[in-house]
């Protein structure tokens, strides 16, 4: 297995008024290709900062981030944007779909940003069908349930086949039933397509779906565990996907 994401002695300090807030204090981490990693920790421990640094949305105060072998920390904003476009898919707690676009339109927009012009209709249908959204392609976000919206957001993150998915509390806005469905689909994607996923969560049950859990506190990794995967709820397996 090769390393898809690596952070080396990552430090991030925010200046709030005259105070310095140390969000990360020398965090080093490696994520293998095809791994499903969950990051847990109390609020303010630096989880989201870590995710934003890994996605090139922030520049660290010190340290390095390497995505698929490319160092993004010393790069220009344009270069980091390019890496994010080619190699990273984001999934957010609040879904962050474009409300004026249909489910398929949201995917098309991601394809356009990727540089695929009008995109690949077959690929969009494949991804939406993978997430059991074939019948919802023409629906706008407000016509979808929370679980469906999050699945569209996952489909959007997947449509350009990124090397890495960064999910920030993907079940934070979902009820337990929809959380289970979304987590099972993420795990299936990971197992059957070897998709690397890094997921932040507060929920210990959600973290159990990952291959590995790291616990953070005060900007450090304090412990690591390998959970036993929970059973897949009936009817949530991804269809048409072969490992």
């Amino acid at each position: 297995m090769s390393t898809i994401l690596q952070t080396i002695d990552l430090r991030m300090t925010y200046h709030v008024g005259k105070m310095d807030v140390h969000a990360l204090r020398g965090l080093s981490l490696e994520v293998e290709r095809g791994e499903f990693l969950a990051i847990m920790g109390p609020s303010g421990c630096g989880k989201s900062t870590l995710l934003h640094l890994c996605g090139g949305l922030l520049t660290p105060t010190e340290g390095k981030v390497l995505v698929d072998g490319e160092e993004i920390t010393a790069s220009s904003d344009a270069r980091r944007t390019d890496v994010r476009r080619r190699k990273i898919g984001f999934v957010f707690q609040k879904f962050n779909l474009f409300p004026t676009l249909t489910a398929e339109g949201n995917l098309k927009l991601a394809e356009r940003i990727f540089g695929k012009g009008s995109g690949n209709g077959e690929r969009r249908r494949e991804v939406l069908s993978l997430l059991k959204l074939e019948s919802k392609m023409r629906h706008k976000p407000l016509e979808l349930s929370g679980g469906e919206q999050q699945r569209v957001a996952i489909a959007r993150a997947l449509v350009n086949e990124p090397a890495l998915i960064l999910a920030d509390e993907p079940t934070g806005n979902l009820d337990s039933e929809n959380s289970e469905i979304v987590l099972s689909m993420l795990r299936d994607l990971n197992k059957k397509t070897n998709q690397t996923i890094v997921m932040i969560t507060h929920n210990p049950e959600a973290a159990q779906y990952a291959d590995r859990i790291i616990h953070m506190r005060d900007g450090h990794v304090v412990s690591e565990e390998r959970p036993v995967a929970p059973p897949v709820p009936e009817g949530t397996e991804l269809e048409g996907v072969h490992s």
Binding site: D77, T81, D82, I113
Partner: peptide, 16 residues
């Protein structure tokens, strides 16, 4: 504003 942030997270360049 949030939509602009989402565009950036999707890798949209400044020019885009």
């Amino acid at each position: 504003t949030r939509e602009i942030g989402v565009l950036k997270s999707l890798g949209a360049s400044k020019t885009f």
